[in-house]
Simulated scan of single mutants.
Amino acid sequence: MLSRVGLNTWKCANRCAIPRTFRSITTKTTITEHTTGRVIKLTDPDQPEMGDYENVEGVLSQDRDPYAKYDDQQNRRNFNEPLNVDADMYDMWSPDYFNFVSDGTAVKHNAIFFSLVFGFGALIWYFQLNPEKPAMPRSYPFGGLAKELGSGEEKTDFFYRVRPDLSAESELGFLPKESDVEKNKEEYTKANADFIQA
């Protein structure tokens, strides 16, 4: 079953006289058009399908000046501008082309980049430009309070403890109990011995 568009196309093909052009290669550099007898000199004998079309050199649209004024600004093309046969490989929608550099240039660019990065880091380290912490790191005594937090044996201390500062513990030890606190406690106990049950 034909669709309406297909049926109309079939009717038009039978009614309308469509002029057909028959061409054949007569020599290596010419084509003869049989309906008119015109002889067409080929611009490129290796591509006879181009006929006498003057193939212009392909210019990548991405390399054209983006600030110039074009009739089609997005595609960077002008009206009636001659096209290369492979224009679809040179337009704005073609794959990106990379401008490759030599190995020596690439090594030089990478060396400059990494020397700047490491030089900047060395400058910060040498002049000590990084500020110190405004506060001491938090530390918990007695191995990070592992026993106080529920560890039953030394094997599980690692999982229970809270980041101890072991170097500070070894250098400074633990703060002794304040003598004032102990003295005040004793005086309070003596003064209120009648109310405190032992």
Rank of each mutant, 00 (worst) to 15 (best):
S94W: 00
A87W: 05
E187I: 01
Y126H: 09
V39Y: 09
R161S: 00
N8P: 09
D91E: 09
N192M: 12
V56P: 12
V85N: 11
Q62K: 10
V56W: 03
I124M: 08
D44I: 09
Y90Q: 02
L83H: 05
I25K: 13
Y188N: 06
S167A: 15
D65M: 06
K11C: 15
I112A: 05
T9L: 12
D165M: 00
F174K: 10
N8Y: 01
E57T: 08
K41T: 15
G119L: 02
E153T: 03
N184V: 11
N110Q: 10
K185D: 03
I31E: 08
I31G: 08
R161Q: 05
E154F: 02
R138H: 04
S170W: 14
G152V: 10
K185S: 06
Y53K: 03
N8W: 05
I112W: 11
K28W: 08
S179L: 14
F79Q: 14
F79D: 12
T26M: 12
I124L: 03
R76Q: 08
T27Q: 00
T32A: 14
W10T: 06
S61Q: 15
R38M: 14
D52L: 00
T105Y: 14
L60T: 11
G37E: 06
T29S: 04
R64M: 02
G144L: 00
R15K: 12
T35C: 14
P131T: 06
N78I: 03
T9E: 11
N78E: 12
L60E: 04
A111V: 08
A17F: 06
G37D: 11
F113P: 02
P66G: 09
A135Q: 11
F113T: 12
E182G: 13
G121K: 09
I124W: 13
T27S: 05
V85K: 07
E57I: 10
F98M: 15
A68P: 00
T21E: 07
D96E: 15
F159C: 08
I25G: 13
P95N: 13
V56A: 13
F174M: 04
T105P: 00
M1N: 06
W10R: 08
D194G: 07
P95G: 10
A122Q: 02
D180G: 09
P176T: 07
L123G: 13
V107R: 13
N192V: 10
K28M: 08
N75P: 08
I40Y: 01
M1F: 13
P45N: 04
D46M: 03
L60H: 10
S94N: 06
H34I: 01
N110C: 14
W125E: 04
E178P: 01
P141A: 02
L116K: 15
E132A: 15
R23S: 09
T21D: 11
E81H: 05
I25A: 15
L145I: 00
V56T: 09
D72K: 02
A111M: 11
G143Q: 05
Y97E: 15
G119K: 02
T189F: 02
M92P: 03
R163Q: 10
K11N: 14
D86I: 03
S167T: 15
I25D: 10
A13N: 03
E186L: 12
V59L: 13
D44R: 08
Y53Q: 02
N78P: 03
F118N: 12
R20Y: 07
E169K: 11
Q73C: 12
I40N: 04
T29V: 14
